[in-house]
Design a protein around this nucleic acid. Sequence first.
RNA 1: UCCCCGGUCGUCUAAUGGUAGGACAGCGGACUUUGACUCCGUCAAUCGUGGUUCGAAUCCAUGCCGGGGAGCCA
Length: 555
Amino acid sequence: MSEPTSNFIRDIILADNESGKHAGRVQTRFPPEPNGYLHVGHAKSITINFGLAAEFGGMCNLRFDDTNPAKEELEYVESIIEDVKWLGGDFGDRIYYASDYFGQLYDWSCQLIRDGHAYVCDLTPEQVRLSRGTLTEPGQNSPYRDRSIEENLDLFTRMKAGEFPDGSRTLRAKIDMASANLNFRDPVMYRILHAEHHRTGNEWCIYPMYDWAHGQSDSIERITHSICTLEFEDHRPLYDWYVQRLGIFAPRQIEFDRLNLTYTMMSKRKLLQLVQQNLVESWDDPRMPTISGMRRRGYSPQGLRNFAQNLGVSKTNGTTEFEKLEFFIREDLNKTARRAMAVIKPLKLIIDNYPEGQTEWLDACNYPDNETDLRKVPFTRELWIECDDFEETPPKGFFRLYPGNEVRLRWGFFVKCVSLDKDADGNVTAIHCTYDPASRGGNSLDGRKVKSTIHWVSAAHAVAAEIRLYDKLFTKEDPNDVPEGQDFTANLNPKSLVKVQGWLEPALAETQPGDRYQFERLAYFCADKSSTKEKLVFNRTVELRDTWAKEKKKS
RNA sequence: UCCCCGGUCGUCUAAUGGUAGGACAGCGGACUUUGACUCCGUCAAUCGUGGUUCGAAUCCAUGCCGGGGAGCCA
């Protein structure tokens, strides 16, 4: 497992503990908006927030940033809770919602109005945009900026009471329309939205904006370190401004770089588009970069955590190679997944000198380097082997099966290829071998060696299964790199899912959804949630490293 | 054009004024009843220019490059 590497956020906490700022208390939070499923980028945030809390003996809350009823749904809340739990985030019973604080937020708004720091503005959205100025020019004060406190209080009360239509008025903070930081140009605190909220129902028709809700929520929960992504850097001064005007507990916002992965798209809006346009099956389609998709595909929580841990934390905008994710998934699965044999591109192998009708049950190890945990595999005269393990005319360096060559059948016998059956077009339809009965279990009596061991399944005992071979969802490192006028869907990989029928050793018939295996010499697989005893379905999680395939590619 | 942030091996990341290190990827080898795993070796970086200093990836200045910012989204 990888050591957590030093990073600037840990340094800040260390320094705070040193100075006694919070008496050594560390409280973080993971604050998703329930407007989509969590993705691997969130896994990084979860690892940082829960990890730091755990490391310093603190706690991390799960808090839903549910301030926009138009986009948020209960389904997302439920999936997020499940995903955070699955990843190992320990939030105990600390599930909070920004909507829990709507009442407090409202009271604090009145306080800011009374202190002359906020006002009700009657400008339309369009007028607000026009008067905000530009990146280089200052904005203009709203004509409603200098209303009396009494009028503001009255109007705001009536906004809350539902007297005004959507978009007709806002509550804005009175700061500085000329600020170079656009967030200071009298930001909107409340907008009128006659929409049903998934938790508060129709209790509210005014909803707080992110900037007004987030820092205050942090403060209420006495968050010491409020860790978010880089795009909120410009918001920090506003975050601090609200907390200071209110005179409440002041958390510190710290920004880090969000995760970018090659061949992956992390925008929730675009992931939603994939789902809605049926370009993938669902949010948990195994090709999706969502936590639920990765879970369904067979990624393990530990593997994901190790990956996130190894990522490090910084403020550099970069893109991590997808191969790194795959490395940590393989690394964990190698330690935890049971081994089994399966053939996904079958080729018939007939052992001419093996008695017809005979079956031997051979011992096979379930895990490498463990000779006590065994299962039985049936061996018969006719087997399925992998197509790629045979070549009629072997390329240089090929030491699997070819005419005249002897290989080992894993856990079985040595077999030597003696002849081939071909169809009218000259395609090989079956391979004939002879076997050495003395090599039972996989070792010759006379000490002769073979260069290759291949996997196999007894044809008479083989269990059929649907095998879903997944590849990258996008063909380009940057899925958003498209010609003018096209969108990222142009880069969708048409071969991201290939379904084939495979043959499994009979022990696999009992597989339950979610079970992970390494089908030896092929890849890691995970039984899909739809898999049943009647119809087994396996998802390819991640392929094994294949130096032979790489070698072949070179020539 | 204005504000904020950032630039270290191909990629990600350490070094907090004192030997530029690790991981992934690549390459080579050893081992192997998985061409897997493991192990060993190897390639490879401080954006440019000035300055401060005995000494600079680190501090200062400046230039260049990249990211973010003008939602009643988060």
